[in-house]
């Protein structure tokens, strides 16, 4: 049987995540000033970057869970890895779509074959393949081993995506550190903008861990039911 009641810790983390995201929203709309060149659309930047950050964090956590699974062979780490990949894909997709909406007024196009956009899409597709291929493996042990190895190899797309705007010629703005002269839509952050940005990153990180625990809880329940079903079928 699985623990169907939410633990106090998870309740508190969920409440904290909601509170943090709402507070970040207040900072974005009420505290951060309007950017002079792009206007209101610049405010998309705070949650867009935070989503991209959580996407990358999720894939790193999945790789760490993969290593831990291969060392300890504990099923929970397999569930953590798979859950983290699913959350990373959601946030990655949100980052791509919100970035595209920001790009329309900033770059005058919804999409361009810029290194950052391409590497982010490849990263997303690599993990989409993870989900599809993982579902095709019947044996739980083999599935977990496959997931762990894939997550460890797949995480290579994270530094490539992160560093693409630093090493390749790109029009995508570099948020931290100086940008390429070709960057379009770059801006200098004022202290309130920087504070809002950092708080948004923190809020989305808390949200990620809350979602991860909920997703792992769901996966554990699904696994317990699968085992019960197998026992019934064997009886």
């Amino acid at each position: 049987m699985t623990d169907q009641k939410m633990s106090l810790g998870l309740k508190l983390l969920t409440a904290a995540a909601i509170l943090f995201v709402l507070s970040a929203g207040c900072l974005v709309f009420l505290y951060a000033p309007r950017e002079r060149v792009m206007g209101e659309v610049q405010r998309v930047f705070y949650f867009h970057v935070a989503s991209a950050w959580v996407g990358m964090l999720s894939f790193v956590v999945a790789a760490v869970a993969g290593v831990t699974y291969l060392v300890r062979r504990t099923r929970t780490w397999d569930l953590v890895g798979a859950s983290s990949v699913e959350i990373g894909m959601v946030f990655g997709l949100i980052a791509i779509l919100s970035g595209s909406i920001w790009a329309r007024p900033a770059w005058n196009t919804w999409w361009t074959w810029d290194p950052r956009l391409v590497t982010t899409t490849i990263m997303e597709l690599v993990y989409a393949a993870y989900v599809l291929l993982r579902q095709g493996v019947e044996d739980p042990e083999r599935r977990a081993r496959f997931g762990a190895v894939y997550a460890i190899v797949g995480v290579l797309t994270v530094p490539i995506t992160f560093l693409s705007i630093r090493f390749l010629r790109t029009i995508h703005p570099v948020v931290i550190g100086s940008g390429d002269a070709a960057a379009q839509g770059a801006f200098d952050m004022t202290p309130p903008m920087l504070q809002t940005f950092m708080f948004s990153l923190l809020a989305f990180s808390v949200l990620y861990f809350a979602l991860l625990l909920h997703r792992v809880r769901l996966a554990r329940r699904a696994e317990a039911i699968e085992m019960r079903r197998a026992e019934l079928a064997a009886a």
Binding site: V41, V44, F47
Partner: peptide, 27 residues
């Protein structure tokens, strides 16, 4: 003059919050 980009702001946050809510709903 500062360009009026409010429609894109609304679109951006609709995608972000809508995506999050959709995922929570799926859970």
């Amino acid at each position: 003059a500062i360009p009026d980009t409010r429609a894109y702001l609304i679109g951006g946050y609709s995608v972000i919050l809508g995506g999050l809510l959709l995922y929570v709903f799926s859970l």
